[in-house]
Design a protein around this nucleic acid. Sequence first.
DNA 1: ACCCAGGCTGGTT
DNA 2: AACCAGCCTGGG
Length: 316
Amino acid sequence: MFEKKNEIRRGEAAIVAAGIGDIDLKDTLECGQAFRYEQVRNENNYVEYLTVVRGNLLRIGQERRGELIFFGISDEVFEKIAVPYFALKTDFTAIRSDVISRTDSAWLKEAAESAKGISILCQEPWETLFSFIISQNNNIPRIRKIVRSMALEYGENLAKKQGLTHCPLSKTGDAPSDDACKNCGVCYSFPSAEAVAAEPEKMLPSKPGFRYKYLVDAAKRVVSGETNLAEIAEAASYEYTLTELKKILGVGDKVASCVALFGFANLEAFPIDVWMKRAIDAYFGGKLDPASLGKYAGVAQQYIFHYIRNLEGNAN
DNA sequence: ACCCAGGCTGGTT
DNA sequence: AACCAGCCTGGG
């Protein structure tokens, strides 16, 4: 694995992570790998997002490529939560060079350049599994809506817990009381497997549709230990991860490889969905062997995926 | 009204 | 082994 050190500036109210390659906050959060992000409008000249990571509400801004600003964050949360989540120690510039060096495809080289702002996040395995089960035959706005709604059902109000004096999404300066937050869900912790397994029917108002029984199966297996996410993480084997995850009802190759890539940081995982099929048919003569792209094939997959979607007028 | 959305299951050939 | 209808639901 390539690694590099970051230059971290610590201010009073924020920690700035600089020298972290080409990362683009919007591209990274909105490329379809994650669902718990919310852009916050502000009057400053930077983009700002809210996101929930392992039970921590994070406020992140970006003024320029390759630099992230974490607002109101402690050193501990920064080191233990933000750095791993955004994979700030992973050198995606070097990985991109590695990918480019392994292909003759001018189209892929172009895609890699175009999508160089994308970092592969390191998300919580359970959250990734649950979210990608919801993602099947579904679109991103609705996936996000379902997750927000379930977080509201099962989760904890983190804005309140973390002592925010006003809601970042409110223009009127409302305090983040349970009452004020009851229709939002953006700032709530992700539903735990235990909570879902204990009261699965609470998912129904969020309208998961035919995925309901899949979500129940996933929660029950994780709680019982039949699916041992910690052990899968420890094994760090792509093949093993796929095999184990596919035992869950409703988890096939696509969902399992997404969870491997985004939830277990198996960067060789290569999810193939309808967009990837289109790209492979149109630009790789109908076949593309992931192994030929090396151990960072999953990063190449994101470049291809991002590029084809932008070319073909990006869908939801 | 109809069709589709970042798949999978279960049944049929 | 390959094929494929049907699936919950919301939005165009």
